[in-house]
Design a protein around this nucleic acid. Structure first.
Ligand code: MN
Ligand code: MN
Ligand code: MN
Ligand code: MN
Lengths: 216, 216
DNA sequence: GAATAATTTTAGACTAATCTAAAAATTTAA
DNA sequence: TTAAATTTTTAGATTAGTCTAAAATTATTC
C-alpha cells in the first residue's frame, strides 16, 4: 500500500493533469502547500514505484497504475462527500475537509458497500463525477456561464471554484446544482450577467459567471 | 491535535487500565505490536503533553485529559463498527480493522451526526458500550458463562475475545448478542457447558464459556 | 541480603517526510 | 546567442516513529 502522503501527491498530479498535459514541480508544490524540494524527493519515490513518469526537469505524468490509484482516491473523496450531504445533512460547503481525511481509508469493500448503500450516485454534491468501482465515469461537457450568449439556457451542473465562500454565496443566491437558468442580459462593460431563475432575475458578476458551470 | 500514533497509545493504555490499575511498558508494547524501547519514547512524549502520569519504571495511568481523548477514540471506533454492521451489512467479525482506521477521523461534527443518524445506539455489534458525545456510558455487569451455575439463565451481551475466529464460531452456533440462554449441564471433568438456546441444546467448551458474557 | 532474572530505559541508528540554502538546468529576453 | 530570470534539483538538517543492543533499575529467589 501507499502512504497517506503518496496518495495526496498522486491525487494532486491527477487534478493538475486535467489542465495541462505534463505537470511541473512547482504546480504540485503550490497545490499541496509544500516546497519544491520536498516535491522533487517525492517524485523520485513515486517514479521508483512506477506510479509516475518522471525525467528530471521535464515534469511528470501518471502511469496507468498511478492514475488508477488517483482515481480510487477521487472516488472515495466524492462518495464520502455525497454521504455527508445526503445522509448526515452537511451543507455542500462543509464537506471537503472531512472528505480529505476519509478518502484515505483503505478498505475497498467499505467504499463499494457505501456506494451501493447510497444507490450508486453519479455526481458528488458539487456536480463532479464519481468514478465507479472500476474507475470509470462519464465526462459531460460543461461550460462556464461566461461563455454563453443572450437567451442561452441550461442546468447548473458544476463549479470551478470549490471554496466555501463561493459555495455559500451560490447557496444564498439559490444557484445550486440542478437548477435551470437562462441568460437574460449581458453587461458589455463589466461582463456581469443577469440570469432568469424560475421567475426571479439574478445579477451575477463576471467572476461568478466564470466559475459557475452549465450543461446545455 | 494528536497524531494517529499518539491516539493509538492512549487507546491501548485506556483498554489495559480496565484490567489493572497501572499499565506497564511491556503490556503496551505487546498490545501495540511494538518494542518496549519505542513505548518508552512515546510515554515521555505523552507525559510532556500531560496526557499520562508517568514516573520511570513505575508504569502509567491516563490523566483526565488523556482519558477524555481515549474515550473519544473508543466512541468513534464503536460507532463506526455499528454503522458498518447496521447500515452497510458487514458481519460482526469483519468490522474491527476498518474501524481501526475510521476511529482516527478527527471531525467531532461528523461523529456526532453519525451517532444521530443511527439513532444514538448504546452498544456496538460486540456488545461493548458506546460512550456518548460527553464520553459517558453505562457499565453494565456482565459475567462469563463459566461463572454461572446449573439452571442460571441470561442474555448474551458481550464477548471477551474479539478475534474473527471466535466471532465466526459464535455466529455459526447462533450464540449472538441478545439471545437468551440457560445452563442445562456443566461437565465437571473438562468444565464444558451445555446451554439451552430456545429449544436447542448447545455444547460449548470451557474456553468458549470463559469468553462469552451474559447479563442476568 | 546477595545473586539472578525480568523489566525498563538509554544510546545510537534508520526511514519517511519535511525544510532552507546553494547549485544546476532550463527558459526568457535582450 | 549570451545574460538574466526562473525553475528544479541537490546537499545537509530536522522531526516523528521505530528498531537493536547495552545499561540501569526493579523484582524474585536462594
Ligand atoms: Mn472536495
Ligand atoms: Mn466535491
Ligand atoms: Mn473493534
Ligand atoms: Mn467492537
Amino acid at each position: 500500500m501507499n502512504t497517506f502522503t503518496e496518495e495526496n501527491y498522486l491525487k494532486a498530479i491527477y487534478h493538475l493533469s486535467l489542465q495541462s498535459e505534463s505537470v511541473s514541480t512547482n504546480q504540485i508544490a503550490a497545490s499541496l502547500n509544500t516546497k519544491a524540494a520536498s516535491v522533487t524527493d517525492m517524485l523520485k519515490k513515486l517514479a521508483d514505484k512506477e506510479l509516475i513518469n518522471y525525467a528530471k526537469y521535464q515534469g511528470v505524468t501518471l502511469t496507468a497504475e498511478g492514475e488508477k490509484i488517483a482515481l480510487s482516491i477521487v472516488r472515495k473523496h466524492r462518495l464520502w462527500e455525497y454521504f455527508l450531504v445526503e445522509k448526515l445533512n452537511f451543507k455542500w460547503d462543509e464537506v471537503h475537509d472531512v472528505a480529505e481525511e476519509l478518502e484515505h481509508i483503505s478498505s475497498k469493500e467499505l467504499i463499494d458497500r457505501l456506494d451501493d448503500f447510497m444507490g450508486n450516485p453519479k455526481y458528488d454534491p458539487h456536480g463532479d463525477p464519481i468514478p465507479d468501482c472500476n474507475g470509470l465515469f462519464k465526462v459531460h461537457e460543461l461550460k462556464p456561464i461566461s461563455s454563453l450568449i443572450l437567451n442561452d439556457s441550461g442546468i447548473i451542473s458544476g463549479v470551478r471554484d470549490h471554496s466555501s465562500s463561493f459555495l455559500q454565496y451560490l447557496e444564498k443566491m439559490q444557484l445550486t446544482i440542478g437548477r435551470k437558468v437562462k441568460v437574460a442580459e449581458i453587461n458589455d462593460y463589466d461582463h456581469s450577467v443577469i440570469l432568469n431563475l424560475e421567475d426571479k432575475k439574478i445579477h451575477i458578476s463576471r467572476d461568478v459567471a466564470n466559475n459557475l458551470l452549465i450543461s446545455l
